[in-house]
Simulated scan of single mutants.
Amino acid sequence: MSASTRGHVYVVDDNSDIRVYLTDLLGQMGYSIEGYESAQTFLQQSFDMFPAVLVLDVRMPNMSGIELQEKMKTLGRHTPIIFISGESQSEEIIRAMKGQPIEFLLKPFQIQDLIDAIERGLALDALNREIFIRKNEIRRKWLTLSSRERAVFTLMLEGHTNKGISEHLDILPDTAKKHRANVLQKMETPQLSDLLALCKGLDLKALEP
């Protein structure tokens, strides 16, 4: 399997022996790899790649792995994280887990456990990317709707018929029918079933500017 199909792995660890070992091993296994000796270097030099996962040491000078986790959140970088740690206090582990990492592995760990966590992280990142793209595409179409069409759109997703829409919005059934047709056209969904499938699981609040 090629690197492009396996995904990308960032390794951030100030211990050069561990960093070189992991980057070499994971590279041989078909992942594309980047290794960084510090959290600051990672922030300065890395680029967002998809799907990707970050293998991150907890204790590092200047900026810890947990501080990097929190910094990434503020920057809007949502790469799944796997923490690795030689020694961690319970409060460190609790703080790290609040950021919902894929895994927290204590050194020395089994390589297979790391690989399993990497695969879970890559699968999650691919799914999140797919959802992100779909949401943006829906929002692009939704922004072309008028305010009245957006109200009709919401009622359509709730399962209301033309009659129900006309009653809710106090408009004529024929007017509701026209708005409904406009919604389907602008959302590029030939039928209501297509619109429902497109928007399945979508939080409508996420569409607001």
Results as ranks from 00 to 15, higher is better:
residue 116 D to H: 13
residue 126 A to G: 09
residue 122 L to V: 11
residue 130 E to L: 09
residue 112 Q to I: 09
residue 139 R to C: 07
residue 140 R to W: 12
residue 123 A to G: 04
residue 121 G to M: 04
residue 135 K to V: 13
residue 140 R to T: 12
residue 112 Q to V: 05
residue 126 A to W: 04
residue 136 N to F: 10
residue 116 D to W: 08
residue 119 E to P: 05
residue 119 E to W: 05
residue 119 E to G: 04
residue 108 P to T: 01
residue 114 L to R: 00
residue 129 R to T: 10
residue 127 L to V: 14
residue 139 R to K: 15
residue 136 N to H: 14
residue 121 G to C: 06
residue 118 I to W: 04
residue 128 N to Y: 13
residue 121 G to T: 11
residue 138 I to T: 01
residue 125 D to N: 08
residue 140 R to S: 13
residue 124 L to R: 15
residue 138 I to W: 05
residue 122 L to E: 02
residue 137 E to M: 15
residue 137 E to G: 04
residue 123 A to Y: 07
residue 110 Q to Y: 07
residue 113 D to Y: 11
residue 117 A to H: 05
residue 113 D to K: 13
residue 120 R to K: 15
residue 108 P to K: 03
residue 110 Q to D: 09
residue 108 P to N: 04
residue 132 F to Q: 15
residue 135 K to Y: 04
residue 128 N to V: 06
residue 118 I to G: 02
residue 140 R to E: 14
residue 111 I to P: 02
residue 135 K to P: 01
residue 123 A to V: 08
residue 127 L to A: 14
residue 115 I to K: 04
residue 115 I to G: 02
residue 140 R to P: 05
residue 117 A to D: 07
residue 110 Q to I: 14
residue 121 G to R: 01
residue 130 E to Q: 13
residue 118 I to Q: 02
residue 108 P to G: 03
residue 109 F to A: 00
residue 131 I to M: 10
residue 118 I to T: 01
residue 129 R to D: 11
residue 138 I to N: 02
residue 124 L to D: 11
residue 133 I to K: 10
residue 110 Q to L: 13
residue 109 F to R: 02
residue 129 R to A: 08
residue 111 I to D: 09
residue 130 E to V: 00
residue 131 I to T: 08
residue 136 N to K: 12
residue 109 F to V: 00
residue 123 A to W: 04
residue 135 K to F: 09
residue 121 G to N: 00
residue 117 A to N: 07
residue 124 L to E: 14
residue 137 E to W: 00
residue 114 L to M: 07
residue 112 Q to A: 11
residue 134 R to Q: 15
residue 110 Q to F: 05
residue 128 N to I: 07
residue 132 F to D: 12
residue 123 A to E: 14
residue 115 I to Y: 07
residue 119 E to M: 06
residue 127 L to Q: 13
residue 135 K to N: 12
residue 134 R to N: 07
residue 123 A to R: 12
residue 109 F to C: 01
residue 115 I to N: 02
residue 116 D to K: 06
residue 130 E to S: 15
residue 121 G to A: 08
residue 116 D to V: 06
residue 132 F to E: 13
residue 120 R to W: 03
residue 132 F to C: 11
residue 131 I to A: 07
residue 134 R to P: 10
residue 131 I to P: 01
residue 108 P to V: 04
residue 117 A to G: 10
residue 126 A to F: 03
residue 108 P to Q: 02
residue 127 L to E: 15
residue 117 A to C: 07
residue 126 A to L: 13
residue 118 I to V: 01
residue 132 F to G: 14
residue 122 L to N: 02
residue 120 R to I: 10
residue 121 G to K: 00
residue 139 R to S: 10
residue 127 L to H: 12
residue 130 E to A: 15
residue 111 I to C: 03
residue 119 E to H: 11
residue 139 R to F: 13
residue 129 R to E: 15
residue 128 N to W: 08
residue 136 N to L: 14
residue 139 R to E: 13
residue 133 I to V: 09
residue 134 R to L: 12
residue 125 D to Q: 02
residue 113 D to P: 00
residue 125 D to P: 10
residue 140 R to N: 14
residue 129 R to M: 14
residue 133 I to M: 12
